[in-house]
C-alpha cells in the first residue's frame, strides 16, 4: 500500500496564477474543443424469416401405430434418436459417452437412409464457464458429434458444425439438473438445400 506521488508541471497555457481579489484574472485559454457528437447510425436490419425445418412431402404409409412419426420426417429423426437428436456431455468434457454413441449410431443410420437431409451439428455448454471459453468448448463438442457421425458413414459434406457456447440453454435452472441438459450436442436436421 504505497502512496504514489505524482509531480507534474502545469503548462503556462492553462495555469493562470491568481490575481489579487479585486482584479479580474486573465481570460482562460482555449485548450480543447470537443468535436461535435457524431451522429449514430442506427442500422435497421430487415428481419429475416426464422429458419424453418421443412420436411420433404411424403406420403404417409399405412402403419399400425398411429402415433409413430412419418418415416423420413424430422419427427422421425428425433424419434429414432430417442426422443430428441441430442447427446449429453460431462462437465468440461467433449468425449462421447456410450449412451451418446448409441444415439449417434441411430442418427447415422437414419441419415444414411435419407441422404436428402443435411444437418447443422450444434455444440452447447452450461453456464459454469466464461463466454469465450464456452464457445471453444461447444466447438469441440460439435466436432466430436460430427466426427462420430462421419465414422458411421455420413458424408462430412452433409454436416456443418456450430458452437453456441452457453448462449442457447434449453434449461434455465442453475443446478446440476439444468447444467447437465445444457451440455449437449444437437443434430439440427435440414432438408437438402437449406442452409
Amino acid at each position: 500500500m504505497t502512496v504514489i506521488k505524482k509531480t507534474f508541471a502545469m503548462s503556462a497555457a492553462v495555469l493562470v496564477l491568481a490575481a489579487c481579489a479585486t482584479k479580474p484574472v486573465p481570460e482562460p485559454e482555449v485548450v480543447e474543443r470537443p468535436a461535435p457528437q457524431p451522429e449514430i447510425f442506427v442500422q435497421q436490419e430487415p428481419e429475416p424469416a426464422p429458419p424453418q425445418v421443412i420436411a420433404p412431402p411424403t406420403i404417409q404409409p399405412p402403419t399400425i401405430d398411429p402415433n409413430a412419426p412419418i418415416p423420413g420426417s424430422v419427427e422421425d429423426f428425433a424419434f429414432q434418436s430417442g426422443g430428441e437428436p441430442r447427446v449429453f456431455f460431462g462437465y468440461d468434457r467433449y468425449q462421447l459417452s456410450n449412451d451418446a454413441r448409441d444415439t449417434l449410431r441411430r442418427q447415422a443410420n437414419w441419415l444414411n437412409s435419407y441422404p436428402e437431409f443435411t444437418a447443422i451439428v450444434e455444440g452447447h455448454a452450461d453456464e459454469r464457464g466464461t463466454r469465450e471459453y464456452n464457445l471453444a468448448l461447444g466447438a469441440r463438442r460439435a466436432d466430436s458429434v460430427k466426427a462420430f457421425l462421419v465414422s458411421q458413414g455420413v458424408s462430412p459434406d452433409r454436416l456443418t458444425t456450430v458452437s453456441y457456447g452457453k448462449e442457447r440453454p434449453i434449461d434455465g435452472r442453475s443446478s446440476e439438473a439444468g447444467w447437465s441438459r445444457n451440455r449437449n450436442g444437437f443434430t439440427n436436421l435440414r432438408a437438402f438445400g437449406q442452409s
Binding site: M10, V14, L15, V16, L17, A18, V25, E27, P28, E29, V30, V31, E32, R33, P34, P36
Partner: peptide, 10 residues
C-alpha cells in the same frame, strides 16, 4: 491558488 483555467466551445 488557481490550478487550471479551461474554456470549451461547443
Amino acid at each position: 491558488k488557481q490550478l487550471k483555467g479551461i474554456r470549451f466551445s461547443t
